[in-house]
Design a protein around this nucleic acid. Sequence first.
DNA 1: AGTACATCGTTAGTGCCACTAACGCAACCG
DNA 2: CGGTTGCGTTAGTGGCACTAACGATGTACT
Lengths: 157, 157
Amino acid sequence: MSHDMTDAGDQAAPARLRSLPSRLLAHVAMQADRLVTERLADADARKWHYAVLVALREAGPASQAELSRRTGIYRSDMVALLNELAERDLVERAPDPADRRRNVISMTERGRDRLTRLDALVDTVQDELLAPLTGPERDQLTGLLARLRDHHSQPSQ
Amino acid sequence: MSHDMTDAGDQAAPARLRSLPSRLLAHVAMQADRLVTERLADADARKWHYAVLVALREAGPASQAELSRRTGIYRSDMVALLNELAERDLVERAPDPADRRRNVISMTERGRDRLTRLDALVDTVQDELLAPLTGPERDQLTGLLARLRDHHSQPSQ
DNA sequence: AGTACATCGTTAGTGCCACTAACGCAACCG
DNA sequence: CGGTTGCGTTAGTGGCACTAACGATGTACT
């Protein structure tokens, strides 16, 4: 059947490779990404859709550039992404009268509805992802990961 | 200067996004990958080089297909990779007399030397990656990640 | 007022990675 | 013998992070 290589492969991978944190991270992140992508695809959504909608809910309407900063999506990729969202009527793009360079992006009613459904979906995916871990273990994991992320985000000076 | 988006961005990312395990994983894995790639590039190596060399050390000479299984690298990508390694004289490709479909890949003396140097390099990168964590915390992290990986690797049956 | 500079949305393109498809060839298995 | 499976190899796909450049617009400085 599927000759999928995300599993460790037929032969045992060398212990040295299996135990390297960087490889472990990459591998699990890939499994996670796949899970998220698949589950969201079932709902005609992509993870970027979700990220933008959440950003709009948490800080209100914004320019494309600001959404880009909030979500970490490059502004060059934001264009097509917002096209997809606008196509689905989840978001509205309007020129900003106060600054004619900008578009103001705001969520539609459908967007808000969709977002609450995606919230639930995303939660179940996280649950599926962390299934083998207990509650406290999940907190440990996310805590440790958050510390790594913060440590490696610009020393900011 | 660098308009690098791996940091969380100028504006605070929404709390909901920042706390999602799948996003955390993706983000940290990306930071880790970058670190590894950069450090190895300084030594004219790529992570795949290292993986193949380790696989050869741990289980001896092997066909390309078996190396592919050991390392998780697709056999279609293995071709160019082995070309790079052979170019650098780290590896030898010889036809297998016992099975004329196969090549037997084995490490050269230079390959063994290079590998021990890369071992050290890789170790320091892992250290750099996990810098903010204590010893026990590192074990916790890798333990939790390994459980996730094993859980999501095919239920194999 | 004029000029230098920064920011906006947008288009195009790069490089890497995981992955698929197909090929000709060789080995294995009934 | 004939069908299936495994091999190395080539080519190509799609997604993602990221860069470069553009014209248009806004801001700051003198």
